[in-house]
């Protein structure tokens, strides 16, 4: 079946990308590392039960200790760690020309963008407190979204 075989090839093998696009994907991968560090730190804080001294900020405690900080018992920070690692992985593969990775990257970043909007709403209107680590993560997600949108679509 030549069509299927061709399609599989297109999706799984590397293709040559313009240098500018490769650079953008590399930048996305590097920025996601900052988000990965932030989320990993918060996950470790959570696992060690150290929200008590989160930078000495009561706001931070209100957010990280709230009911919104977990989904089905899983800390949001841990989910964030996985999401940033996924972004790094997909961006790296996309930079090496993997077509499917581009799609996965766009979908992941879009979902992170929506989640970030929800968490900003929760902090601003439900908890009335902002956690600096969460704001840093939000800034990174917005930056990633901007970069993904800015990447030119292939004709």
């Amino acid at each position: 079946m030549p069509f299927q075989s061709k399609s599989r090839d297109r999706q799984s093998t590397a293709i040559a990308l313009p240098r500018g696009t490769v650079i953008v994907y590399a930048v996305v991968a590097l920025i996601s590392l900052a988000g990965l560090a932030d989320a990993t730190y918060l996950t470790v804080q959570n696992l060690a039960g150290e929200t008590a001294v989160c930078g000495g900020s009561p706001d931070c405690f209100r957010v990280l200790g709230s009911v919104y900080s977990k989904i089905a018992g899983i800390p949001i920070a841990a989910i964030g760690t996985l999401a940033y690692f996924a972004v790094f992985t997909f961006a790296t593969f996309a930079a090496f020309g993997y077509e499917r990775a581009r799609t996965f990257l766009a979908v992941t970043v879009f979902m992170m963008f929506l989640s970030t909007l929800w968490f900003l709403y929760v902090q601003a209107f439900l908890l009335h407190a902002f956690c600096r680590y969460c704001l840093f993560s939000a800034a990174i997600t917005f930056l990633l979204t901007g970069l993904i949108v800015a990447i030119p679509r292939r004709p």
């Binding site: 996950t43 696992l47 060690a48 039960g49």
Partner: peptide, 25 residues
């Protein structure tokens, strides 16, 4: 790309483990 991703994953897990050991009660 596999090597890079594996390396970053390894570093992240290693750093998180070290941080947790330093912080755990």
């Amino acid at each position: 790309p596999f090597v890079i991703v594996a390396l970053v994953g390894f570093i992240t897990v290693g750093a998180a483990t070290m941080l947790y050991r330093a912080k755990r009660p």
